[in-house]
Amino acid sequence: MAKAKVATTSLCGCFGCHMSLLDIDDRILKLVELVDFNKSPINDIKEFTERCTVGLIEGGCCNEENVRVLRDFRKHCDILISVGDCATMGGIPAMRNTIPLKECLDEAYLNGPTVHNPSGQIPNDPEIPLLLNRVYPCHEVVKIDYHLPGCPPSADTLWEALVALLTDKPVALPYELIKYD
């Protein structure tokens, strides 16, 4: 049987969910037998080279590049999974959602107690992705098929869900694997 193709990305996240995936210990040897990674920071493949069975999304959408990458994942993946609380509800970055964007930028680049910025400029280079007005959970941008909550989801949660999907079984997580922290 051909190995399933898996792609992963970290949008507006901290890479903690990717670290949790690596935390599956020696099961990573079994994972290598089950899947090939396509676009992913794990192997540093930057663009999709083929269609993937599963796409794992870490982080929500805080800028235009996140939205572009997320839509690219939706286009290339059969099953898209929001991994972790940032992808699911915005997470820590979404704390800025109750504060106007200009106030956030002013605090970060002009008014913050530790800011040293003699030019008084707020970064605005065309190469820097434009920030969105707020942080969006992934399912508010594209259709998401599964949510794995947690900050990060435990290695067991990721393993159980991934193996169930790749072996055509229902994703039925036991009580102790659904956690929001």
Partner: peptide, 17 residues
Amino acid sequence: AYRFGIAAPKYPYLFPK
């Protein structure tokens, strides 16, 4: 939410102040 097995709410987040 854990007892009911809620992985994510189906409603949009309101992010109230």
